[in-house]
Design a protein around this nucleic acid. Structure first.
Lengths: 299, 299
DNA sequence: TTATATTGATAGGAATTACCTATCTTTAAA
DNA sequence: TTTAAAGATAGGTAATTCCTATCAATATAA
């Protein structure tokens, strides 16, 4: 069996037309015809039904085509492995991030990454933690950036930074007049939280529990920005991760963001990848680049 | 890139010796030498370090060899797919079973499968449910036989049979004199159970809860046979799945097995496989074969 | 030191094969 | 009946895989 034959089969499966399939493979139609027949002979099964007017895949043909694609993908990975050895900061990388982090973190780190490592091509994906972990396991993603810890043992992790929370309160709330706040002051207050599925919800719940605050069970926001709007409407207060807090607050803002006194509640942001991934060097470089960008940010 | 070249690399990786590797691939040593060099040229990396006295893989070589093995495995799967289309009841099949079922079910079904489908080669694996599911997902296993339901959506399932429980009690226990038992009679009694991890433990706990019985928290058996020994020692009673109950009970047995009156508590045994697996037909045939064997058993 | 065995590389040639162009056959539509 | 479309067939060529024979370098034994 030859890889080229598998490419021909996949092309025929996708084009349903010998001439177009041959064109796509940059060979003549008789070549493709012959090679496909050879593959069928070797496997001892008819893969493609050639009626004069249309091309149809047999059941076996469909199944083999699916598997052929898998083979070709794994072959492509060989080339990527070699490329990564040649220059760890080149090639394609599928990165997954959680929704409460991606829109605030990416603008801060992407410019630096692009200038520092122009040869690396990042594909960015946004999902909640559970989905990210599953996609990492299935190798649909190469690297995750999310809140740690997560319960999963067969991944390696790299620390990035701690992200403190601030309290977002409506401007005309009494608390809004303070310059700073302590956890104790939240005791018995009600907080707006994200809906089920966001890890930020769990982290906020933990802090609420420690502070003795309650969740407003009547409201559940589906995103951090919706949540922010609700605070702006005066519906209540919430915990906002640092990166989602505007850099400077103007007098017109309907929301005040109060930093916490020590000990500041925070969440731990880090990276996760499959243990033993050949891209480890790439990830460590990215870790340093991101940490550097975030330190810059602090100033 | 050619599949043959990948085979050569894998052989060199495993033999660390060009002559032996060539022999294993049924080619001459110069052929293997040349083809391997061609692969290195194409990838642009040194894969194997040839010092005069020993052969060593470079880091890139190791990584590529690992991936090459993956490619070759996927190619092998193509042949298996075709074989399964040609004759669904041939080829290799990796079957996973839970430990509280395997030793009692297999002797009842394997003889029939072997005579009915001699061309199929079964590899049997025994793990607890969580491990089985992970291995099925990773395609290390093709088919599971376990207690349903399990919480997993991307698998298909086939029903096999319901397995009633019986109550195993020490012979000199008062209950042992009854010919039959009802759930109510277990109320407030203490039961011996399996340790954490066995799905049977969860099923038994559910039944205990319904019956108002308690778990003896001082004891946890690691297998059903250990549990049986403990009952024999007069330490307490337990729920025993039907298949683990001896066919005939002699007077010397230190354990009595009491069937339940209706509604009999039972567990649901079924098969699980990856949705859309090309072996579906194989699985359905096996399902029928097993059900037939179990009906025979009933008589 | 010198002979010998081991191991991978190189050279040159034969067999195979993947591919091309040109042509044929069959079918559906004009 | 003709024409167009689509896949199969034929024959020839260039590339490639593999062989045998041989070489070069090293380690071990005499």
């Amino acid at each position: 069996m030859k890889l080229r034959e598998l490419e021909y089969l996949v092309a025929v499966d996708e084009e349903r037309h010998f001439n177009r399939a041959a064109e796509r493979c940059f060979v003549s139609q008789p070549t493709l015809s012959g090679q496909l027949k050879k593959l069928e002979d070797e496997l001892g099964v008819l893969l493609v039904e050639r009626t004069r007017r249309r091309v149809a895949m047999t059941e076996a043909g469909k199944a083999v085509a699916v598997q052929a694609r898998k083979v070709l993908t794994e072959v492509k990975t060989i080339k990527e492995i070699v490329q990564a050895f040649d220059d760890p900061m080149s090639g394609e990388l599928h990165v997954g991030l959680i929704p409460t982090l991606a829109p605030y973190l990416l603008p801060r780190i992407m410019p630096g990454i692009r200038t520092q490592y122009p040869k690396i091509k990042l594909w960015l994906h946004e999902y909640q933690t559970a989905v990210l972990l599953e996609k990492l396991r299935r190798a649909e993603l190469d690297l995750l950036i999310l809140a740690l810890p997560v319960d999963s043992n067969d991944f390696s992790q790299l620390h990035l930074f701690n992200e403190p929370f601030q309290l977002a309160v409506p401007k005309d709330e009494e608390l809004a007049k303070q310059p700073i706040i302590t956890l104790d002051e939240l005791s018995d207050r009600e907080m707006l939280l994200l809906e089920e599925g966001h890890c930020l919800r769990g982290q906020a719940l933990d802090i609420c529990f420690m502070a003795g605050a309650q969740e407003n069970v009547g409201f559940h926001a589906s995103s951090l920005e919706t949540l922010r709007q609700m605070v702006g409407e005066g519906m209540g207060m919430t915990l906002m991760p640092q990166l989602a807090v505007p850099a400077q607050q103007s007098g017109q803002d309907r929301i005040r963001y109060l930093p916490f006194a020590d000990p500041k509640p925070s969440r731990h942001i880090g990276m996760l990848y499959r243990r033993g991934s050949y891209r480890e060097e790439t990830f460590i470089n990215l870790q340093q680049q991101i940490q550097q960008a975030m330190e810059q940010e602090q100033k």
